[in-house]
Design a protein around this nucleic acid. Structure first.
Lengths: 141, 141
DNA sequence: GCTTGACTTGGAGCACACTCCAAGTTCTAC
DNA sequence: GTAGAACTTGGAGTGTGCTCCAAGTCAAGC
């Protein structure tokens, strides 16, 4: 086969190598393999030579996982979600419940960060005053 | 001495035990000792029998550290800040610079979380539609 | 067809931030 | 003054999420 990608059958999809997916997602190839081993992503397609080739759907799922990760979901919870997804449409209510719970904990997280940001601003103001009012004076912090 | 706390000299300050500080801060006694060993907090006062007694100022500093931690500052960076603080008023500009940098990365963090929250909302809407439009139908997720 | 670089696997190792442990000491209440 | 809880230390162990490694296989260009 002089055909660039040697997938067993069908599809003219992108079929990216692991290095290409790594570059697009910011994950390392090792992390991508780790996610697959951990069951976060289904076993992706392979070439006849057993090398991974990622389809567009794999990319989309990875991007969703990254969103969950960036918003603080643990690998364990993502594994749970992935398992539900693999179990098909019947688990939609469970998945919805998980997402709603995660969404609300994210809202709380954001509120907490904003409170802390305000307190940090006050601390910064304090330091700025130390600096402008009495530069080079040995007052305790 | 029938005097509850047996600090070497002076002060009628609160002087809390490690267990009391643990309860107030939510940190474990082990974590408090770890923070002290790590140089995040100055060596706190001891009784004649070598047990820790925390003063109000120790509490205030701990609360500030917790704010830094909750907003994602690493132990290493907090060690750096603590060292600057121990070095006195001359390091105020450095400390201010650290706080400003941290404040701005926090702002970016919050923006990113809000973007992700919006994307999650869209995903949740999608799942809700799956549920209301075609309940009990085997459509792929 | 051969080289060079990318890929494969299972498993070991790592950084971070704690958390636990053992053996001994101190504190508090009675 | 004594029992029992709380404390002390140094050091080992843990969970999470990767990250690296060795030894071998595959892919792409010349």
């Amino acid at each position: 086969m002089a055909d660039g990608s040697t997938l067993p059958e069908q599809n003219r999809e992108p079929a990216l190598t692991i290095a290409q997916v790594a570059e697009r997602t910011g994950l390392s190839p090792d992390t991508l393999r780790y996610y697959e081993r951990a069951g976060l992503i289904d076993r992706v397609g392979r070439t006849t030579g057993n090398q991974r080739r990622y389809a567009a759907a794999d990319l989309a799922w990875l991007e969703f996982l990254l969103r969950l990760r960036e918003t603080g979901m643990s690998i364990t919870d993502m594994q749970h979600f992935a398992r539900l997804r693999a179990d098909g449409a019947a688990t939609v209510p469970d998945r919805l419940a998980m997402l709603r719970a995660h969404r609300s904990s994210l809202a709380e997280r954001i509120r907490s960060l904003r409170r802390n940001a305000t307190a940090l601003d006050a601390k910064i103001d304090h330091y700025e005053q130390l600096l402008t009012e009495q530069p080079e004076t040995d007052t305790p912090a």
